[in-house]
């Protein structure tokens, strides 16, 4: 860095400003490009699905038939499949994820909590297609002979539990999704729980509370909005997850009526049909499914970040 001492640098002010400006301008343009990219995704999905919206209008969203031969397209079965599979995932993953986060943050010693958290984070790194492969050949058949057959036997008289169960379908997709969103829920919730100030815990212990009472009366209520945010982020991931779901949900074209029906989600429908579809109304309708999914996930993500942001802001205020 001997250049620093070069007296010429002091004189040539104008010239040496130029690289600075170029640097700020260049990186700034790239930064703006990130925002532009997001806008562009929205715009391109909208314009490329315009044909569908012109043809069907909003009845595309409520239409229940997807028939390329008759050139009639409706998104409702896939919206339903998306919502149902994600709902199953949340019902399973939210309580297990929260209780796991509580164990890691409150009960486990640091020596155990750190490696366990690491292992759960690893689960998030496993490629979706590998989880799907395992889902098709291992988890699905396992669910079929255990949980699913049990539920069909015990509750089959209730329409939504009606069999037969194949180990491939809505329920298997929900379980796979639950496994995939657990790391999100666990790691974010754990971070939020750990951030609850020790002073609040001590105050409750000082009143003669058991550990669980400290957790349930003080720690979880303080962390509540962050935990809700973590669950919504998990939901966002479940809604958009594609490959693993595609592989285990089957290929149902109707609105599922039972937990064990085969179905399709918005994303799995795109994945399975895109390459075979005819450019024109069919491709446009698949992109329209994508636009619906995009809007849902953006809304969900924004809501989740507001919750998580609030939580961290509130805790910062407490400290």
């Amino acid at each position: 860095m001997t250049v620093l001492l070069d007296p010429r640098r002091l004189q040539s002010r104008r010239l040496s400003r130029l690289p600075d400006r170029a640097f700020v301008g260049g990186t700034g343009a790239v930064g703006a490009g990130i925002v532009a990219l997001l806008v562009l995704i929205l715009v391109l999905l909208a314009t490329n699905s315009a044909l569908t919206w012109q043809t069907f209008g909003l009845s595309f969203v409520t239409g229940t038939v997807w028939d390329p031969v008759a050139a009639v397209y409706g998104a409702l079965p896939f919206i339903a499949g998306t919502i149902f599979s994600s709902a199953i995932a949340i019902v399973i993953a939210a309580p297990i994820g929260l209780l796991t986060a509580i164990f890691l943050a409150e009960y486990a010693s640091r020596r155990i909590a750190v490696p366990l958290t690491f292992i759960i984070e690893l689960l998030a790194a496993i490629p979706s297609v590998v989880i799907g492969l395992w889902g098709v050949f291992v988890l699905g058949p396992f669910l079929k002979v255990t949980v699913e057959s049990f539920m069909v036997d015990a509750f089959g008289w209730i329409p939504i539990f009606r069999g037969p169960a194949f180990g491939i379908g809505l329920f298997a997709a929900g379980v796979i999704l639950a496994i995939m969103i657990l790391p999100t829920i666990v790691t974010i919730s754990r971070e939020i729980l750990v951030a609850v100030p020790p002073a609040q815990r001590e105050a409750m212990y000082g009143l003669g509370a058991t550990r669980w009472e400290v957790i349930s009366h003080v720690v979880v209520p303080i962390a509540r909005s962050g935990i809700i945010g973590a669950i919504i982020l998990g939901l966002g991931r479940a809604l958009g997850e594609t490959l693993a779901v595609t592989m285990v949900i089957g290929n149902g074209q109707d609105i599922p009526r039972s937990l064990f029906d085969q179905a399709q989600t918005l994303s799995s429908k795109i994945a399975t049909s895109f390459n075979e579809s005819e450019v024109g109304l069919q491709t446009s309708s698949l992109i329209a499914l994508g636009l619906i999914l995009l809007v849902i996930t953006i809304v969900i993500n924004v809501v989740a970040r507001v919750f998580v942001g609030h939580a961290t802001a509130a805790e910062a205020g407490l400290r």
């Binding site: 100030p197 002073a199 609040q200 001590e202 409750m204 003080v218 509130a314």
Partner: peptide, 10 residues
Amino acid sequence: VFQRPNPFPT
């Protein structure tokens, strides 16, 4: 009673 006031914020 602790050093810093710590009422339960919720």
